[in-house]
Computed example of a mutant assay.
Amino acid sequence: MADDDAVRTPGGPPALVLLLQEFTLEANRYVDTAGGRNDMHRTDLNALAVIMRHAAKGTVVTPGVLRKELHLSSPATTALIDRLDQSGHVIRERLGSDRRQVQLRMTPKAYRDGGAMFLPLARHMGAAMAEFTPAELEVAARFMESMTQATIRAAQEAAGPEAAGPAALGPE
């Protein structure tokens, strides 16, 4: 491994942890700026990301799924969905024979607006990634996945034992 100065800052956390913190801060600033210019809250953009992720997997997103994944109260979830519906980014569809279950779907407008908001970020990140070899990107991807899973486990631990059952802990 590299010498300790490259891995750990004097008296502080490892340099990689500081870089992850800085990346997270800058990514949050970008989301706030891009969302703010489009009259969208961070929670709105997070909701669209959840819906998009589920759509890519072919799974249904209900208000309950959104509430759980975004850690919102029921009233906050309703207000969020109302905002996204009124802005033309999400539609509610009734499912099943009794039509009681509501599914949330992104509209073409949401995909267009999201693409426009995040195109500059994608362009700059793509250019930065082009500076690395496929092998380096593979290592970076494994590292980021590992950091993401570690963060999920830490959040579950911070939430307390009632939130972290065996299934919730994820891969070891």
Rank of each mutant, 00 (worst) to 15 (best):
D3C: 14
A6I: 09
V7R: 15
R8S: 05
R8T: 08
P10T: 10
G11D: 03
P14N: 03
P14G: 14
L19T: 09
L20N: 12
Q21S: 13
L25D: 06
N28Q: 13
R29F: 11
R29H: 15
R29T: 07
A34K: 00
A34I: 04
A34D: 00
D39E: 13
R42D: 07
T43V: 14
T43E: 08
L48P: 01
L48D: 00
V50Y: 03
I51Q: 06
M52I: 04
H54R: 15
A56C: 02
T59Y: 13
G64Q: 10
R67A: 09
L70H: 03
L70P: 07
H71V: 10
S74D: 15
P75Q: 07
A76H: 05
T78Y: 08
A79F: 15
I81L: 10
D82N: 12
L84V: 02
Q86T: 09
S87A: 12
S87V: 05
I91F: 05
R92D: 02
D98S: 07
Q103F: 01
T107R: 08
A110C: 04
G114A: 12
L119S: 12
P120W: 00
L121M: 14
L121T: 01
R123K: 10
M125A: 11
A127W: 02
F132L: 13
T133S: 15
P134R: 13
A135P: 00
L137K: 07
V139T: 11
A140I: 02
M144T: 11
E145T: 07
Q149L: 07
I152S: 03
I152P: 01
R153L: 15
Q156Y: 12
A158L: 14
E162G: 01
G165E: 10
P166C: 04
A168G: 08
